[in-house]
Amino acid sequence: MSAVLATPTDGDGRTRVAVTELIALRARVARVSWPPVQSRASSAGQQHSRLYGRGMDYAESRAYQPGDDVRRLDWRLTARSGKLHTKLFQEEREGRVLVLLDTHASMRFGTRARFKSVQAARAAALVAWFAVRAGERIGAMAFGACDRVLKPRGGVRGALAFCGALGEWDALENPAQFEPLSDALARAGRLLHGASRVILISDGFSCDEAARKRLLDLRHHASVGVLMVGDPLELASAPAGRYPLEHDGVRREVALEADRQRETFQRALGAGQQRLGDLARALGLRRRTIDTTADPMDAVTALMGQGGGVT
Rank of each mutant, 00 (worst) to 15 (best):
Phe130Met: 06
Ala24Leu: 02
Leu303Pro: 11
Glu21Ser: 11
Thr20Ala: 13
Gly189Asp: 07
Leu77Glu: 15
Arg214Val: 02
Arg93Ser: 09
Ala128Gly: 15
Ala302Ser: 13
Leu51Arg: 14
Ile138Thr: 05
Gly167Arg: 07
Pro66Arg: 09
Arg281Lys: 15
Gly270Ser: 04
Trp75Phe: 08
Thr86Ser: 07
Leu172His: 10
Ala128Val: 08
Ala161Met: 09
Asp57Arg: 09
Ala268Tyr: 15
Gly11Glu: 00
Phe162Glu: 08
Ala6Leu: 07
Val250Ile: 12
Ala128Lys: 00
Ala131Cys: 07
Thr292Val: 00
Leu160Lys: 04
Leu88Trp: 08
Ala79Gly: 02
Lys213Thr: 03
Trp34Glu: 15
Glu94Gln: 15
Leu235Asn: 06
Thr86Met: 04
Pro296His: 04
Val300Asp: 13
Asn174Gly: 13
Phe115Asn: 10
His85Gly: 05
Pro8Tyr: 06
Gly225Ser: 08
Leu279Val: 09
Ala165Ser: 12
Gly55Thr: 06
Leu218Ala: 02
His221Ser: 09
Gly230Ile: 00
Arg76Gln: 12
Ala176Gly: 12
Ala24Ser: 06
Ala165Lys: 09
Gly204Asp: 02
Ala44Ser: 15
Ala222Cys: 04
Thr301Lys: 13
Leu216Gln: 13
Pro244Trp: 03
Gly307Leu: 14
Ala255Arg: 12
Gly53Trp: 09
Ala41Pro: 14
Ala255Tyr: 10
Met228Ala: 09
Lys83Trp: 13
Ala131Gln: 02
Ile23His: 01
Pro36Gly: 07
Glu94Met: 08
Thr78Tyr: 05
Gly272Pro: 03
Gln47Met: 12
Gln177Tyr: 12
Ala6Pro: 00
Ala140Gly: 12
Ala63Ile: 12
Arg54Leu: 14
Gly45Lys: 08
Leu276Cys: 14
Glu136Asn: 05
Glu168Ala: 07
Ala145Leu: 00
Arg187Ile: 03
Gly284Thr: 09
Gly95Gln: 06
Leu283Asn: 07
Leu269His: 09
Leu185Asp: 10
Glu173Gly: 13
Pro35Trp: 01
Gly249His: 03
Asp208Gly: 07
Gly307Gln: 15
Phe89Lys: 10
Arg114Gly: 06
Gly45Val: 05
Val19Lys: 06
Ala120Asn: 08
Ala294Trp: 01
Gly139Gln: 00
Gly158Asp: 03
Ala18Val: 05
Leu227Val: 02
Asp259Gln: 14
Ser202Cys: 03
Ser206Val: 00
Ile199Asn: 01
Cys146Asn: 11
Pro232Gln: 08
Gly158Ser: 04
Arg214His: 01
Pro180Gln: 03
Gln65Arg: 13
Met228Ile: 12
Val224Gly: 04
Ala120Arg: 03
Glu246Tyr: 07
Ala131His: 08
Gly95Pro: 14
